[in-house]
């Protein structure tokens, strides 16, 4: 069996490809059993999007244009959410080296969300019932969270685990692009690329070295694993 080297999972978001269509949100929500909260709760800012598209308007009519930026947990190497959790519910996993939420430890202090500079964490303010038979589509690989628990993007850790187990069972190394979180798999514009940053030849590594790269709030020193590629324009945009 091949020797396994630890992977350093990373995501690249190419903003020049991204159209802001929000398919990533739908894919993420269906994969990760994210409940819908209804109109009133969305209005109160309690929607449970693990990934959201930040849309800002730039310019004045008629040269006005929206900018779209999908934002999910940045999987910080130096995560501000971790040291503030009193119950170690926000931790780095040893095997995947990504930041995970341990739902059964979480007591709902919400310190982590307050300390997250990216607003990546969302809180279950209520239990959100799914009427029968809608529970049939819940993904058995992902825990269903209850009221009082913080949750966030996990890079679809269940897919990482499944992919790694499959490769192990077949006695081979993981192939580049074999593991895709739900958002990456769905993205119709192919704006999202996921892979192992420790492999310099992987597609994600190559893109992350692009001249267009930047990190969100880089100056905070959070060492995000998500790299954005700046959108470019033909007219100096």
């Amino acid at each position: 069996m091949a020797e396994e080297r630890p992977a350093k999972w990373g995501l690249v978001v190419d903003l020049d490809r991204c159209t802001g269509c929000n398919a990533c949100i739908a894919a993420c929500s269906m994969e990760n059993n994210v409940p819908f909260v209804g109109e009133d709760e969305v209005a109160y800012g309690r929607a449970l999007y693990w990934i959201r598209t930040q849309r800002y308007w730039e310019g004045e009519y008629p040269a006005v244009t929206p900018t779209f930026q999908p934002v999910m947990c940045q999987q910080c190497g130096n995560a501000p959410c971790e040291p503030v959790c009193p119950v170690y519910a926000s931790v780095h996993s040893e095997e995947e080296q990504i930041n995970l939420a341990v739902y059964n430890r979480c007591v709902g202090t919400r310190y982590c969300a307050n300390n997250c500079p990216y607003f990546a964490r969302v809180f279950n303010w209520f239990d959100y019932e799914l009427p029968e038979p809608m529970r049939s589509y819940l993904n058995p690989d992902v825990t269903v969270r209850r009221r009082g628990v913080m949750e966030k993007c996990t890079f679809c850790v269940q897919r990482i685990v499944r992919g790694r187990q499959k490769a192990r069972a077949e006695g081979r190394e993981l192939r580049d692009g074999e593991i895709q979180p739900a958002c990456v798999q769905a993205c119709p514009a192919e704006a999202l690329v996921f892979g192992d940053l420790s492999d310099p030849e992987s597609r994600v590594s190559q893109l992350a070295r692009s001249q267009r790269r930047y990190h969100l709030l880089e100056e905070l020193g959070t060492l995000p694993r998500v790299t954005y590629l700046k959108g470019v324009g033909n007219h100096g945009g």
Partner: peptide, 12 residues
């Protein structure tokens, strides 16, 4: 319901 909950791309 998830399409209802999905923000409209332009207006959110």
């Amino acid at each position: 319901p998830w399409l209802q909950e999905l923000p409209d791309a332009m207006t959110t």
